[in-house]
Amino acid sequence: MLSNWDYFMQEKHSKLRKRCRKGIPHSLRPRAWQFLCGAQALQDKHKVLYQSLTEQPGDPKCLDDIKKDLHRQFPQHEMFCSENGVGQQELFLVLKAFSVLDPEVGYCQAQAPLAAFLLMHMPTEQAFWCLVSVCHKYLNGYYSHGMQQIQIDGDILFGLLKKVAPQVYRHLKRQKIEPVLYMTEWFLCAYTRTLPWSTVLRVWDMFLFEGTSYL
Score class of each variant (00 low, 15 high):
residue 38 G to N: 07
residue 203 V to Q: 14
residue 99 S to H: 07
residue 54 T to I: 15
residue 140 N to W: 01
residue 62 C to K: 05
residue 215 L to C: 13
residue 202 R to M: 07
residue 208 L to K: 09
residue 50 Y to A: 09
residue 99 S to K: 02
residue 195 L to F: 11
residue 25 P to M: 02
residue 158 F to L: 02
residue 26 H to E: 11
residue 188 L to D: 06
residue 114 L to Q: 07
residue 19 R to L: 15
residue 72 R to W: 07
residue 72 R to E: 09
residue 202 R to D: 03
residue 121 H to E: 05
residue 20 C to G: 08
residue 33 W to S: 11
residue 123 P to T: 05
residue 160 L to M: 14
residue 30 P to I: 04
residue 40 Q to D: 04
residue 210 E to L: 14
residue 110 A to I: 01
residue 111 Q to K: 02
residue 201 L to P: 07
residue 183 M to F: 07
residue 202 R to L: 15
residue 103 P to D: 11
residue 141 G to H: 05
residue 168 V to N: 05
residue 170 R to P: 00
residue 18 K to E: 15
residue 56 Q to S: 10
residue 187 F to S: 14
residue 81 C to E: 10
residue 153 D to C: 00
residue 8 F to Y: 15
residue 40 Q to F: 01
residue 3 S to I: 09
residue 126 Q to W: 00
residue 193 R to I: 13
residue 41 A to P: 00
residue 183 M to L: 12
residue 66 I to L: 07
residue 136 H to M: 08
residue 113 P to S: 07
residue 47 K to F: 01
residue 202 R to W: 12
residue 73 Q to A: 09
residue 71 H to F: 08
residue 26 H to R: 12
residue 8 F to H: 15
residue 141 G to N: 05
residue 58 G to N: 03
residue 63 L to D: 09
residue 79 M to A: 06
residue 207 F to Q: 12
residue 57 P to I: 04
residue 6 D to Q: 14
residue 181 L to P: 00
residue 44 D to Y: 00
residue 167 Q to H: 13
residue 193 R to M: 12
residue 21 R to N: 09
residue 66 I to D: 06
residue 156 I to S: 00
residue 63 L to H: 06
residue 1 M to L: 11
residue 88 Q to Y: 04
residue 42 L to Y: 03
residue 41 A to C: 02
residue 195 L to K: 10
residue 193 R to K: 12
residue 16 L to V: 10
residue 193 R to L: 13
residue 118 L to G: 06
residue 17 R to V: 11
residue 58 G to E: 03
residue 90 E to L: 13
residue 9 M to I: 15
residue 40 Q to V: 00
residue 49 L to E: 07
residue 174 R to H: 10
residue 162 K to M: 05
residue 73 Q to K: 08
residue 210 E to Q: 13
residue 91 L to V: 03
residue 98 F to G: 05
residue 194 T to Q: 11
residue 76 Q to F: 06
residue 128 F to S: 08
residue 75 P to C: 01
residue 200 V to P: 04
residue 21 R to Q: 12
residue 194 T to F: 04
residue 123 P to V: 04
residue 89 Q to E: 12
residue 197 W to G: 01
residue 211 G to V: 01
residue 29 R to C: 02
residue 26 H to Q: 12
residue 33 W to L: 11
residue 108 C to G: 02
residue 16 L to P: 01
residue 197 W to V: 10
residue 69 D to S: 12
residue 132 V to D: 03
residue 187 F to R: 15
residue 92 F to I: 00
residue 40 Q to L: 05
residue 188 L to S: 11
residue 158 F to Q: 07
